[in-house]
Protein backbone atom coordinates (compact mmCIF):
# COMPACT_ATOMS: atom_id res chain seq x y z
CA UNK A 1 0.00 0.00 0.00
CA UNK A 2 1.52 3.30 -1.06
CA UNK A 3 1.31 6.31 1.18
CA UNK A 4 2.80 9.70 0.71
CA UNK A 5 3.55 11.35 3.96
CA UNK A 6 5.06 14.57 2.86
CA UNK A 7 3.70 16.96 5.45
CA UNK A 8 6.02 17.32 8.39
CA UNK A 9 4.67 18.00 11.76
CA UNK A 10 6.02 18.47 15.25
CA UNK A 11 7.57 15.23 16.35
CA UNK A 12 7.56 13.77 12.84
CA UNK A 13 10.99 14.83 11.79
CA UNK A 14 12.02 14.04 8.22
CA UNK A 15 14.19 11.01 8.09
CA UNK A 16 14.29 7.39 7.10
CA UNK A 17 11.48 5.07 7.99
CA UNK A 18 12.29 3.62 11.34
CA UNK A 19 10.43 0.48 12.11
CA UNK A 20 12.98 -0.50 14.69
CA UNK A 21 16.00 -2.65 14.13
CA UNK A 22 17.15 -5.51 16.34
CA UNK A 23 19.57 -4.13 18.89
CA UNK A 24 23.11 -5.45 19.09
CA UNK A 25 22.59 -6.47 22.73
CA UNK A 26 21.03 -9.84 23.16
CA UNK A 27 18.50 -11.14 25.64
CA UNK A 28 21.14 -10.71 28.38
CA UNK A 29 19.74 -7.24 29.06
CA UNK A 30 16.16 -8.25 28.96
CA UNK A 31 14.05 -6.54 31.51
CA UNK A 32 10.48 -7.66 30.88
CA UNK A 33 7.67 -5.21 30.26
CA UNK A 34 5.14 -4.79 33.04
CA UNK A 35 1.67 -3.28 32.86
CA UNK A 36 0.80 -0.98 35.72
CA UNK A 37 -2.60 -0.57 37.38
CA UNK A 38 -3.24 2.10 39.98
CA UNK A 39 -6.13 2.68 42.32
CA UNK A 40 -6.07 6.19 43.67
CA UNK A 41 -6.93 7.09 47.25
CA UNK A 42 -10.51 8.00 46.32
CA UNK A 43 -10.77 5.40 43.58
CA UNK A 44 -12.87 2.28 43.56
CA UNK A 45 -10.87 0.22 41.12
CA UNK A 46 -7.44 -0.14 39.60
CA UNK A 47 -6.97 1.65 36.31
CA UNK A 48 -4.41 0.78 33.68
CA UNK A 49 -1.96 3.67 33.45
CA UNK A 50 0.84 2.40 31.26
CA UNK A 51 3.83 0.13 31.25
CA UNK A 52 7.47 0.08 32.31
CA UNK A 53 10.52 -2.16 32.26
CA UNK A 54 11.79 -3.79 35.44
CA UNK A 55 13.94 -6.79 36.26
CA UNK A 56 11.60 -8.14 38.93
CA UNK A 57 8.22 -7.49 40.53
CA UNK A 58 9.60 -5.54 43.47
CA UNK A 59 11.42 -3.18 41.15
CA UNK A 60 8.33 -2.87 39.00
CA UNK A 61 6.21 -1.77 41.95
CA UNK A 62 8.82 0.73 43.09
CA UNK A 63 9.21 2.09 39.59
CA UNK A 64 5.45 2.39 39.30
CA UNK A 65 5.39 4.33 42.53
CA UNK A 66 8.14 6.64 41.29
CA UNK A 67 6.60 7.24 37.89
CA UNK A 68 2.85 7.16 38.44
CA UNK A 69 2.29 8.35 41.98
CA UNK A 70 4.57 11.37 42.17
CA UNK A 71 1.65 13.65 42.84
CA UNK A 72 -0.46 11.60 45.20
CA UNK A 73 -0.17 9.39 48.24
CA UNK A 74 -1.85 6.31 49.54
CA UNK A 75 -2.47 4.41 46.36
CA UNK A 76 -2.63 0.75 45.52
CA UNK A 77 -0.34 -0.51 42.79
CA UNK A 78 -0.66 -3.70 40.77
CA UNK A 79 1.97 -4.79 38.28
CA UNK A 80 1.58 -7.66 35.87
CA UNK A 81 4.05 -8.90 33.32
CA UNK A 82 2.66 -7.87 29.94
CA UNK A 83 3.06 -11.41 28.67
CA UNK A 84 0.63 -12.58 31.37
CA UNK A 85 -2.15 -10.30 30.23
CA UNK A 86 -4.74 -12.09 28.13
CA UNK A 87 -7.02 -9.86 26.12
CA UNK A 88 -10.12 -10.41 24.11
CA UNK A 89 -9.68 -10.00 20.36
CA UNK A 90 -11.42 -6.95 18.87
CA UNK A 91 -13.16 -9.12 16.27
CA UNK A 92 -14.74 -11.15 19.06
CA UNK A 93 -16.36 -7.98 20.33
CA UNK A 94 -19.36 -8.82 18.23
CA UNK A 95 -20.12 -12.12 19.98
CA UNK A 96 -19.28 -10.82 23.41
CA UNK A 97 -21.15 -7.58 23.35
CA UNK A 98 -23.77 -7.39 20.63
CA UNK A 99 -26.36 -9.71 22.23
CA UNK A 100 -26.68 -7.19 25.06
CA UNK A 101 -27.97 -4.60 22.62
CA UNK A 102 -31.22 -6.61 22.39
CA UNK A 103 -31.75 -6.49 26.11
CA UNK A 104 -32.50 -2.79 26.36
CA UNK A 105 -34.75 -3.40 29.35
CA UNK A 106 -31.46 -3.61 31.34
CA UNK A 107 -30.99 0.12 30.81
CA UNK A 108 -32.61 2.58 33.20
CA UNK A 109 -33.65 4.91 30.40
CA UNK A 110 -36.05 2.25 29.16
CA UNK A 111 -38.41 3.06 31.99
CA UNK A 112 -40.62 6.11 31.87
CA UNK A 113 -41.38 7.23 35.37
CA UNK A 114 -43.37 10.16 36.72
CA UNK A 115 -41.21 13.22 37.39
CA UNK A 116 -41.56 12.85 41.16
CA UNK A 117 -39.57 9.62 41.20
CA UNK A 118 -37.50 10.12 38.05
CA UNK A 119 -34.27 10.73 39.93
CA UNK A 120 -34.11 7.02 40.77
Amino acid sequence: MNTYIRRFFYGDIPGQETGGSPSPQGPKNDWPLWEVFIRSKQGLDHKHVGSLHAADAQMAIENARDVYTRRQEGVSIWVVKSQDIHASRPEEAGEFYDPAADKIYRHPTFYDLPDEVNHM
Binding site: L52, H53, E62, D66, V67
Partner: peptide, 11 residues
Protein backbone atom coordinates in the same frame (compact mmCIF):
# COMPACT_ATOMS: atom_id res chain seq x y z
CA UNK B 1 21.46 3.22 33.52
CA UNK B 2 17.81 2.96 32.59
CA UNK B 3 14.99 5.46 32.47
CA UNK B 4 13.04 4.08 35.40
CA UNK B 5 16.10 4.25 37.65
CA UNK B 6 16.83 7.79 36.51
CA UNK B 7 13.44 8.68 37.90
CA UNK B 8 14.07 6.70 41.09
CA UNK B 9 17.38 8.35 41.95
CA UNK B 10 15.97 11.79 41.11
CA UNK B 11 13.12 11.07 43.50
Amino acid sequence: PVLEQDIAISN
